[in-house]
Simulated assay, not measured.
Amino acid sequence: MSGTKLSLADWQQQLGRADSKAETSSADGLVYSTDQGRIKTPATPAEPAKGFADGKLRLKRETKGRNGKAVITIAGITEGPQRLNEIAALLKKKCGCGGAVKDGVVEIQGDNRELIVAELEKLGYSCKWAGG
């Protein structure tokens, strides 16, 4: 056995298992290499969420898939991910609960409908209840 270190990509090439895309390590699924360390794929920029035609935000109370616990989802905010995180943080502080931003939709735990609508209207958004 030889004492030289060999990267995974080089080893695969020697065995003939590498694709024709061996030059780009992210294309062949390589995650870690002893030469370079962890290989990161370039992140694609997130697209801003699409708004609704009437320009209003949609607020929906959801319990499905959450063991019966209510969550208010806010969809239709057309601003970037940084602004979505700011809005979510503000609403979580005002409501005194948790929440998250997932796929351009702000989720706030609990059922604080009136408080959420009041805070969003202070920020200049018009809201509309969707669903039940």
Rank of each mutant, 00 (worst) to 15 (best):
R58H: 04
G55L: 09
G65Y: 12
A130I: 05
D19Q: 11
W129V: 11
K64H: 08
A18D: 10
D54V: 10
D19H: 04
K69Y: 05
L91D: 04
R38W: 05
A53N: 12
M1T: 10
G65V: 09
I77R: 03
T41P: 09
I39D: 04
I108F: 00
A22P: 03
C127N: 09
K60I: 10
W11G: 07
L6A: 15
G51H: 06
N112C: 11
G55M: 03
G51M: 05
V71D: 08
Q14S: 13
V71A: 05
Q82R: 10
Q14Y: 11
R61P: 02
V101H: 10
G132D: 04
G99L: 09
Y125P: 12
C127L: 03
K93A: 11
A43N: 07
I108R: 07
A22R: 13
A118C: 04
N67F: 08
C97T: 12
I39C: 12
T44L: 03
G96D: 12
S2V: 06
G132P: 10
Q12P: 02
E47Y: 02
D111F: 06
E121T: 13
F52A: 03
A18V: 14
A88G: 06
L84M: 12
E114A: 09
L8I: 11
R61I: 08
K128W: 08
K92P: 07
V71C: 07
V106A: 02
G76A: 03
I116E: 09
K128M: 14
L6Y: 07
A27G: 05
K93F: 00
Q36M: 12
S126M: 04
V31A: 10
G132C: 00
A43P: 06
Q109T: 07
V105G: 02
E107T: 15
R61V: 04
I116P: 00
C97Y: 06
A27S: 14
C95Y: 02
I87P: 03
R61L: 13
Q13R: 14
L15H: 08
I87R: 06
K60Y: 02
Q14W: 05
L120N: 10
N85W: 02
K122M: 02
P42Q: 10
I87D: 00
V105N: 04
K5L: 11
I87W: 00
A89S: 07
G80N: 15
T78D: 04
P45C: 03
I87T: 03
N85D: 11
K50R: 15
A9R: 11
D35S: 08
V31P: 02
W11K: 13
I39A: 14
V101M: 04
S33N: 14
A49N: 01
P48M: 09
E114L: 05
I116F: 01
K92L: 03
G131N: 05
D54M: 04
I74N: 03
Q82S: 10
E23A: 14
G131S: 02
S26T: 15
I87C: 00
A46T: 10
E62Y: 01
V71R: 06
G29R: 15
D10Y: 13
L30G: 12
N67E: 09
G96V: 06
Q36C: 11
L123F: 00
A27W: 15
